[in-house]
Amino acid sequence: MSRPIDTENIITNRHRIRFTAAMNLFLALTYLAIKPLFTRPNISWLHYLHFIFQPLILFASITEITYIVVIASYISIVLFCSDAAVVVISGISVSRCYLEPTAWCLGRLYENGVWALLGVFFCLFNLIAFLQSQNLSKQLEEKDVKEAEINELLKIRKIAPKFNKLKINAHKIHSLHLFLIVQDIIYVAITLAKTFTNPIYWLSVGHIVLDPYIVYLGKSENKSFYDMTRIVYILFLLGDVALFVLNLELNTRDVAEWLAFLFILVYISLDIILIALSSEIITDHLNLRKMKSSI
């Protein structure tokens, strides 16, 4: 489809959404790192939701599909409410300590104060993500209207439309694979170092083969190519998710294991994005074929 290109405002909104998603993931990793230091019961486990939903919000920052951005804005509100619940519950626990200046209460004051502060930062970035997603969805709706007008004009003139989204998404996929190559090398080095003590990291070494291969092939726009790679991305995602869950069970981590854990999170996020971009390309091919047959 002859879709209008992003304006400066749209690009800015996309960057802001990516920034909030990155900050929320950083806060979630911070939560994961400090959680073993606290022993009292709390509902801070709700922060784990960010590991599930932030990759989807990251994808919303690059997609051209309006309803996905709308869904991302709703997800941001849900996350805001869950994080706000942590803040409120922690605040209630803190307020009760004003009348009980005991050692146990001071410990609870410290722990719940940390959870409340962390929750406030989560809420802040969730709110920004919601507002920016709302703005982006309205801007994409305007692009949808303009695109429909252009396609209608092309249909009247019996001119085959050009799907510039194919080139855009192919370029995005190529760039993501190029970005991952350095990470792949470091991850494989960590995997080799941890082979005897923690061999689970082998579940994600397939990226070291796939990423250079995709970069070598270049920016393909062939539908069958993305039919194949989408299956590969799904398999990689399943392996990365399994590895992520296994890593959550580790009680202690050294620097290399923390770095590997961060890389696994990046792999999961980008696997989801790659699956979605591949699906968009496949859908665009089908739509292009349908539109050409109707001319």
Rank of each mutant, 00 (worst) to 15 (best):
Y187M: 05
R16P: 06
W202H: 09
I234L: 10
E100T: 13
V241Q: 01
V255M: 14
H171E: 09
L25I: 15
H177N: 06
L58A: 07
R289T: 13
E100C: 14
A60R: 03
L58D: 10
L210Y: 11
I273V: 05
S61T: 09
N126S: 10
S133D: 09
T12D: 07
A33C: 13
G107R: 00
K155C: 07
L136P: 00
F225K: 09
D184Y: 04
T195V: 09
N169W: 00
A84V: 04
S204A: 12
I92S: 15
E111S: 10
S137R: 05
L56R: 00
K167W: 09
S220N: 14
I268V: 11
W45F: 15
F261Q: 02
L37I: 00
I43S: 01
F53Y: 05
A260Y: 00
E64P: 04
I43T: 13
I65P: 01
V94R: 04
D184K: 06
L259I: 06
S95R: 12
Y187Q: 01
I128A: 02
E152Y: 07
L140P: 01
H171L: 12
R3G: 00
I92A: 15
L246K: 09
V215M: 08
I17V: 14
L192N: 13
H15Y: 09
P101S: 08
Y74W: 13
L56M: 11
G218T: 09
F26W: 04
H177L: 07
E111D: 07
S2L: 08
I62W: 07
V241D: 08
I190Y: 14
H177M: 10
V87I: 10
L106G: 12
S204T: 09
V114M: 03
A85Y: 07
K162V: 15
T197R: 08
S293N: 11
K35V: 02
S294T: 14
P101K: 09
